[in-house]
Design a protein around this nucleic acid. Structure first.
Lengths: 228, 228
DNA sequence: CGATTGTTTCGATCGTGATCGAACAATCAA
DNA sequence: TTGATTGTTCGATCACGATCGAAACAATCG
């Protein structure tokens, strides 16, 4: 009876509040895990799993397995543009959600990415280690030099003595806010733990935000300067 | 808890099959009455009335009273573009409606997009005007050159003498089937009217399909050749 | 003025789909 | 291996919203 593509199908898909929340969370460009998306959407992990299955089946999102996590992200820019267009229509219709928080700038500055530091701070640390020869990029791989190991050890960051085959010591992770790499892997986790243990920084409630104290901030910049 | 526009609201609105059918029927550009839309969507007039109320409230459609009829049409080109974008996503997701009948190729070839011509014909006309210097892209904007105005005028396409601030003379609209731009705006509407008035093409019953006669087809290709 | 057609309101029904508890599977750390 | 974390499947529940019958309302026409 009717011809043409079934727009009701995808519209209904986006039309569920939980799924819409997930998609909007992914609009930031960062890949999120099923649990994170569940919290973001305000539903239980089971429900989240159900919704993610539907979205993936329709090709709106794609997933990347990494360890025991599944990182979900938008399928491509077409989907992002569609969501943008819908946001525009919703805005002018006066359909806005309750309140808009000041959290986003803090997220861009420094946040937890799974188990390591991301955001401007994470990118700066990565760049500093790289320019000082403590870290070398080798194609897809990333290696900590002898000098780098000594530097971190002297600082007080504890690292396992020998490399583990299962989980790499160093790994680069792409940052959404800065579109630059930052340090992941065991060393990345150790570094974040170090910052938290030393009191340089704290996590904020249940969010991904990391705040540096004034003291911690100056120490961080002294330790991870970009000169030399 | 969440910030940003409520895309779930409008998505849910479009997500209902009956409403989606109505909106797609309105994509032909013609204004339809509540009863006609009811038949188009396959529901009773009561249900139709209910849905139309919701859509109008959200600003997706507008109505014009005329006698004892109420003529409904899409609110503006923004809504039309959103629906086009959704069609594109639905297509590539393989979500076509039940009988993917022989109508689909015809839709890809040439169809009405709100009030102008889309599909292969629309794209070809756009490309032809562009390569011959009758149309110039200027970032997001699109301008008709003096030569272009002369060309259309000589052809017999009537255009307003001076630009209107509210509605642009030329506007590019992205095509879901071809993933290319075609001409929208006042000039786009005028061009479509010209094709229909001259008998080069006809609309098919109540659908969005436009069929060119043999005569019209050859004239179209002669007029909008891609060489030079 | 009634008669006819088009549209809306109300109330009740009903099916679809979101949701969560609980159990299960997979992966990693020690 | 064991234990902990993460993710999924299954089943049952439940609420929301689409739908339509009946009837009221509105606007034209003869």
């Amino acid at each position: 009876m009717k011809e043409g593509p079934n727009i009701a199908g995808i519209a209904a898909l986006i039309g569920d509040p939980a799924r819409a929340n997930m998609l909007q969370a992914l609009m930031t460009g960062v890949a999120l895990t099923a649990s994170e998306l569940a919290q973001e959407a305000g539903v239980t992990p089971q429900t989240s799993s159900f919704h993610l299955g539907r979205l993936a089946e329709a090709g709106l999102i794609k997933l990347r397995r990494q360890g025991r996590h599944k990182y979900y992200s938008l399928a491509d820019s077409d989907v992002a543009e569609l969501l943008e267009a819908m946001s525009g229509i919703a805005m002018r219709a006066g359909m806005t959600r309750v309140r808009t928080g000041p959290k986003e700038p803090a997220l861009r500055r420094s946040r937890i990415c799974y188990n390591h530091l991301a955001g401007e701070y994470g990118v700066q640390a990565y760049d500093s280690l790289l320019t000082r020869g403590f870290l070398v990029e080798d194609g897809e791989q990333l290696h900590l030099t002898g000098d780098g190991r000594g530097f971190l050890s002297e600082l007080g960051v504890v690292l396992p003595e020998k490399e583990n085959k299962r989980r790499p010591l160093c790994k680069s992770c792409l940052d959404w806010s800065a579109r630059r790499s930052h340090l992941a892997g065991i060393a990345g986790t150790a570094l974040l733990s170090f910052f938290l243990d030393q009191g340089w920084a704290k996590r904020v409630d249940g969010s991904r935000i990391i705040t540096f104290s004034r003291e911690g901030d100056s120490r961080f910049h002294a330790t991870f300067s970009l000169q030399d």
